[in-house]
Amino acid sequence: MAHFDLFNEMDLLRREVDNTFRNFALGPMSTPTFLPGSTSGDYPRLNISSNENNLYIEALMPGIRPEDLELSVMQNTLTLSGERKADSDDDNNGERTWHRRERGIGRFMRTIELPTSVDTSKVDALCHDGILAITLPKAEHLKARKISVSAN
């Protein structure tokens, strides 16, 4: 006979409420998680910064292997797509109990428009500790150039 455990039910309810409000409590900054499917916001989360020569993009992507990631730049549009796969040992058959399952898996794609033109041939991307760092050099014609004036 199924046993009704009040405390267990209360814990489950609490977790459900937590999950529902996870992205509301403290705004997007409070959630470092990668959760396809359970958030309405855009993912992966991006930080974009710039200096006079380059545009830097950082994307949060824990658990995504570089080979499962696709990055393309076309004119002023950057597209980041890929898939977070389930861990290989989860595929093994056998009895298993999930106590927590908060990390989402699945495919994702995000397209952003870059604020300036970039030199697409010199884009560099590096993945380390779950953060993808992309460096996009600004197009040559946007950089300030000193022109010497000659008198005749």
Binding site: W98, R100, R101, R103
Partner: peptide, 16 residues
């Protein structure tokens, strides 16, 4: 965010 999964042999905790 974590995944916690238990099998007959072990407990695995994965955290992003």
């Amino acid at each position: 965010a974590v995944d916690i999964v238990e099998t007959e042999q072990a407990l695995t905790v994965r955290a992003d």
